[in-house]
Design a protein around this nucleic acid. Sequence first.
DNA 1: AATTTATTTAACCAATCGGTTGAATATTTT
DNA 2: AAAATATTCAACCGATTGGTTAAATAAATT
Lengths: 104, 104
Amino acid sequence: MLDSTMHALADSTRRSILLRLGKKEQSVNEIAEPYEMSLAAVSKHLKVLEKANLITKEKKGRSYTCRMNYEPLNEVQELINQYKVFWEARLDELDNFITQTKKD
Amino acid sequence: MLDSTMHALADSTRRSILLRLGKKEQSVNEIAEPYEMSLAAVSKHLKVLEKANLITKEKKGRSYTCRMNYEPLNEVQELINQYKVFWEARLDELDNFITQTKKD
DNA sequence: AATTTATTTAACCAATCGGTTGAATATTTT
DNA sequence: AAAATATTCAACCGATTGGTTAAATAAATT
């Protein structure tokens, strides 16, 4: 899961699409409009986001409505938190070391 | 920056290396030990992490000491927060809509 | 029924990926 | 000086990436 989520977020076009979908759901055409690339390319980006479960598509007539799904980002948040825990523990150790050294 | 950070984190070996380095700095050999892949492969992973500025290497005698660097993760955290803000705004709208509907 | 609109699929491309093996480099130990 | 240790570099591999264009599919409009 994290592999596909991170991979999906490792591209600025996809991050930008996701930010826009965070604000408002949109059709594929609307999503593609600001980018200087083919519709097929955007369609591929959407597929990557969809596989990562960061968006869902619902067919509405002849167009698709795309929505963001926050859920996979919880796992990213957990990862960051894990790193943070260890990182701050390390900083504390360093702090103790300095305090200890001063004492002598 | 985010491109390289996310790309670096989109691989479970690299995430695992980073977690271990979060706890304790280690040499390349120590880092490589638990993985069933060549040292050269691990060396490449370390280069990816280094390019993303998630680790630094310092030459100590004939070996290298690798340390984690948290800083790039701040940007990831900001990204997640951005998504969160919009996501929760959307949830609020939905909430208002439901409340509104009930009222009628 | 024919046309337009919305989107995907397929085939292709060069670049990058994650891995390999074998040789090269640098340092320490003997 | 020779041997051992720590690590990287270079060349190679097949798979995947992010893009293209052209054709295919599906639904709405005329």
